[in-house]
Each structure stands twice: as structure tokens, then as C-alpha cells.
Computed example of a mutant assay.
Amino acid sequence: MMKKTSVEIIKIIIFTIIFCGKIPAQITLATIKSDDQNDRELYIKGFVQADYMVSFQNMKSKDGFSSYSIEIPQKNAINSNFSVKQTTLGIGFKQKNTNDNKTLSVYAEIDFSGPNGTTAPRFRHGYLQWNKWLAGQTWSNFSDIEILPMIFDFVPPDGLFLTRRIQLRYTTPISTKGSLSFSLEDPNTPSIRLPTDSLNWQKRAIIPAFSTLYRYGNEKNYIKAGIVLSPISYDMKYTSKEDYKTNTIIGWGGMISGKIRLDTKNTFSLQSSFGKGFSTYNTNLREESYDAVPNLYNKNLLETLQLFNIIGAYEHWWASKWSSVFFFSYSNIGFYDFIPKDMTRRFQNISCNIIYHPYKKVRFGIEGNYGKKQNFRNESADGWRIQASTKMYF
């Protein structure tokens, strides 16, 4: 009897997940009204996704398409991969003070993209938010999660700025449609290349990155403009008898992005960014040592590298249950004589999909990705990947 009851409960939960609510959504576990009349809510949210991918070129990134990870020289080879690593699970708590309109919330989230290709849980988000303040790890203030198109791929468009950071952030409205946010972010995030010698130069985390972002618009149409300053510090010396001294250089970047919804069927998105020494904010380059490299012609002192990115996306609804997204992305590293020739100079990708939405919280689809990269030796390689996916929100 108990087994039958459990099965019925599971059926009810699945029915609720599939047929009710909007995307993104959440399941409320408990709602409490305390003696002080404050509303408190405990909830979970996330999605389950399963992917089957076929690649036609060797690339290091197995669970998501990344043009940067295509191997040079060209090696055409067919590889397939099943993955559920995109699946996420989050739990949160909210409290709203009805007297002074202040809110308190706590949220934590994991996915299953563990180390060394495993499906072990991986920490994604964990933060506390009180009124206008946020402290913890979540999307960088210099990221624009709203511009992410409706795609299945684990890796967003190559040129997109979408990274998670430990941070302290303050956000405030400055008009009916405008808001301004400031953040101090983890000083250990710059990714640099140090000289390969016996003197053991070392990266040092001293000054946190600072970013500010302005947003104007509503949920459907908006524009954002942001600036980031990213100090890069390292210990250096030229002889074994010297003491280490700390040198600091400044990386910087600017970003503008926006979305225009022409009507219920057509939406355009665009983002562009440019700067020096801020490559760690790029989706593909965050741990690849592209913020700064040694200048052999200037005593091996580190110099920041330029980076330019642009992406555009178009979403179209063919019918009430059918949609597609097309996007392009291009990234280019500025040229200097001292840059190692094996480093990537430019990379780009395009993608297109077709998605069927049988219910509000269920998607099935096929997605194709093409990418190309070129290094500073002018060697290049390109690759294709086709992905079939199913996704269910809760």
C-alpha cells in the first residue's frame, strides 16, 4: 500500500513539473507567515537535461562546443558522447519584510560537471542577498545572463562574457527603467602566463577586480553597458640572490549588450566587448592564460593582451510549439611579436537549432555548431558538432 501511495505521489509531482508554471520556474516546498507578518518561502528549482553529441573533429571540450578547444593541426575524426552534466539543482530561501519592503534571500546551486570528466556534483552558485546587497558566488556583475539565447549547448557562444565570480555587489535603481550596480570580485581570477625559468615567478592575489554595470529597459527590451578593471599582480626577480618584488598591471574592458523583441515571434540580441587583460571574463578563455604574457623584448615583464568579441543572436517562433535560434560569434586577440606562436589568435562559431516545446517545461531539439580557430603561426582548424537534446524544467 505504501509503495502504491509513493508511486501516486511521484506521478503528481511529475505532472506538476510538466504542465504547470512558466520557464524558468521553481517548486515551493514551504511557505510560512510568521508572527511579524513576514512571508518566508523555501523552494527548489533547476532542470534535467540529457544530450547526445556527434563531433566530426577532435576537440578538447567534450560536453560543450568550443571553437577554442578545436585541435591544431586539423584531425578529422568522428566522436560521440552522451552527457547529463548540464543538469542543475538549486535550493533557495526568501523572506520579505512587509513593513519596510526589504528582502532577504539565500540560494545555492550545483550541476554535475565534476573534475576529470566525471559526473560528480560541482558547486555553481552560493550567495546571500539582502535588499540591494549581494555576497557570495554567482554570475559576475560584468556578465549578461539575460542575453543568452535559447540553446542546448553546455558552452555559450564563444565570445560571450558569462562567468561566475565570488563577489560583493550593490545594485540600486536610478530611474523607472534604469539600474546601476557595482561589484568587487575575486582578486585571484586573472589568468596569466609566467616565464618558464628556475626563478619561479608567481601570481599574487592582492587587489579585487572592480566592475560597474548600467541597465536600461524592461524584461523584453533592454540595453546594458559595463566597465571592468582587473588588477594583475605577480612576484618577480631576475637573479636567485634578489628578493621577490611585486609588480601590478591593470587589465580593463568595456562591454555593451542588448535585446530587442520586435514582436511575439522575433527577438534580436547583440553583445560586443573590447579591452586588454580581461580575457578571463570570456566564456572560453577564463583559465587559459590570455590576460597577460611575458614580453621577451622587455625583461619578461608581463603585458596585457587585447581582446575583441562580438556575438549576435536571432530567435524565431515558427508556431506556438516550434522555435529556432541562430547565432554567430567572433573573438580576436590583438597581435604582438612576443606572443607565443602556439596561442590562439582568433576563433569564431555559428550555431542553429530547431526546438519542439510539447509542454511549457519540456523541450526537445537538434542543434548544429560550426567553429574555426587560428593560432599565431597562422595554422587553422575547424570542426562540426551535431547535438540532440531533451530538457525538462522544475
Rank of each mutant, 00 (worst) to 15 (best):
N188Q: 00
F182W: 09
G136P: 00
S183W: 04
D39Q: 01
T103L: 10
E185H: 07
N300S: 05
G334T: 15
D186F: 03
R345H: 14
S230E: 07
G217Q: 02
F161Y: 11
P149I: 09
P149R: 01
I366R: 03
T103K: 09
G254L: 14
W318H: 02
E379T: 06
N266Q: 07
T176G: 03
Y370D: 08
R346C: 14
K45V: 02
K237G: 11
I23C: 12
S69I: 09
Y281G: 02
V84H: 10
K391E: 15
F335A: 14
E219W: 05
S143K: 07
K360W: 01
K132C: 12
S67W: 07
S324F: 04
T304L: 03
I44Q: 00
I249C: 08
R385D: 08
G365F: 03
D111S: 10
I32D: 13
F335I: 15
S69P: 01
A77N: 08
A205F: 00
F338M: 12
K265S: 06
F112L: 15
P294Y: 03
S105Y: 01
N131H: 15
S269I: 08
E8N: 07
P73S: 05
W139K: 01
F65T: 05
A108G: 05
I72F: 09
D382Y: 12
T267G: 04
D153E: 14
T5D: 11
E146L: 13
R385W: 09
S324M: 07
T118Y: 07
D100P: 01
P190R: 06
N332D: 15
C20F: 10
W317L: 10
Q137N: 10
A120K: 10
K259G: 00
S113L: 14
W322M: 02
V362L: 15
T304Q: 04
F142Q: 02
I366W: 06
E146F: 12
T28V: 15
I17V: 15
L184V: 09
L302V: 07
G275T: 07
Q57S: 12
R169I: 14
M343G: 06
I207M: 10
S380P: 01
G114Q: 12
L305T: 08
G136R: 05
D186Q: 01
T212K: 01
D342I: 09
L270P: 00
Y356W: 15
L301Y: 14
D342N: 08
V155M: 15
T28Q: 13
K220W: 04
I206R: 05
S233E: 04
N375K: 11
T280G: 02
L160W: 00
D243E: 13
Q137R: 09
F376A: 04
I223M: 02
S233K: 05
L184E: 05
I311Y: 03
S198N: 15
V293I: 11
L262F: 04
P195L: 13
M2T: 09
S83Y: 13
D263A: 14
D35C: 06
A120Q: 06
G226T: 03
S351H: 07
V293W: 04
K96L: 11
I350M: 14
K361W: 03
K299F: 12
I339C: 08
K237Q: 14
N221E: 04
F210D: 02
F326G: 06
I250C: 14
V84G: 13
Q95H: 07
K361F: 06
N131V: 05
I223Y: 01
